[in-house]
Simulated scan of single mutants.
Amino acid sequence: MRKLRIIGIGAGNPEHLTLQAVRALEQVEAVFVLDKGEVKADLLRLRREICERFITRPFHFVEAQDPERDRNPQDYAAAVEAWHTARAILYETLIDRELGEGGCGAILVWGDPALYDSTLRIVDRIVARGRLALDYDVIPGISSVQALAASHRIALNRIGGPVHITTGRAIADGLPPDAESIVVMLDGDPRFDHLDPELTIYWGAYLGTPNEIVLSGRLGSIASEIRHVRAEARSRHGWIMDTYLLRKPDGR
């Protein structure tokens, strides 16, 4: 049976890897990567750097083009379902071709595999298809949420309070009424005009990397600066990964 290790590699800093992740990499003989094109070449380069730094045995880097995904679908759930299926078939083909019986491979996941990442669902599909005898485990990683809090030197929650983690799509019509600390991920085009200007925002992009940018302040005062800085950084690098925390004023 082949073994697959799903390894969280942190938000961008190779030193975010845990000791457990480093030990897992030492067993790996093949690393499977879906290439997202020239625009995100930095992400591929960092994966290579991590492998070359921590894998001490001979290994091979297996790259394939990521299946196309409709970014503006009429039916979002159906589009994601089709994309996950295409990815599962591709990974299954690569693992079957590149990893022998009893071999150990890895998929390196940005942040933590359990938080807004599709890899675990895709591997579950491979197993459910039953065409490949595959065992796998999951190595947790430092997420962009943790990296954001560390860079701003803040606690995510108020004393005894909850933290709501969601997406940009989910707050398009406003924030959850009872949430006081809201972390927003996967926001491709942050727009803040519909939100309370008295919110405090802690924003960060390229967290953990040499290109890290962090800004914070009253949302009504800093929203336009965040949008400007974000657009300029995206134009310069060709891509951007950012996360932010919104916090309601005391008593709101």
Rank of each mutant, 00 (worst) to 15 (best):
R2Q: 08
H152V: 07
L108A: 10
D196W: 10
E81I: 02
S224A: 15
R2V: 08
M241P: 04
H84D: 02
R153E: 11
Y244W: 10
N211G: 01
H194E: 03
R87L: 13
G105A: 05
V183C: 05
R158Y: 11
R153C: 13
D187G: 08
V62G: 06
Y206S: 01
Q146D: 08
V229P: 01
E180A: 11
D117S: 14
D196K: 09
A233E: 07
L120M: 14
A82K: 15
P140K: 04
R53F: 00
F54C: 05
M241R: 09
D112Y: 13
E68I: 12
T209F: 11
I122F: 09
D70V: 15
R69V: 15
M185H: 09
W83I: 06
L17P: 11
V138A: 00
I55C: 02
E92W: 08
L175V: 12
G160W: 06
G217P: 05
H60D: 00
P177S: 07
S216I: 04
A64S: 12
I182G: 01
S216T: 13
T56E: 06
Q65D: 03
G141C: 09
E101V: 10
E101M: 04
D137M: 11
R121H: 14
R218K: 15
A78T: 04
R48W: 14
L219R: 01
F192L: 06
L186V: 05
D124I: 02
I213Y: 03
N157L: 00
D135C: 03
R234D: 00
G10I: 13
I222R: 02
E63R: 05
V127Q: 08
E26R: 15
K248M: 09
W83N: 15
L115W: 11
V214H: 01
K3Q: 15
L17T: 12
H228W: 08
D42P: 00
A172Y: 02
G102T: 12
R45A: 15
R218L: 06
T200M: 04
M241E: 04
D70W: 08
Y76I: 14
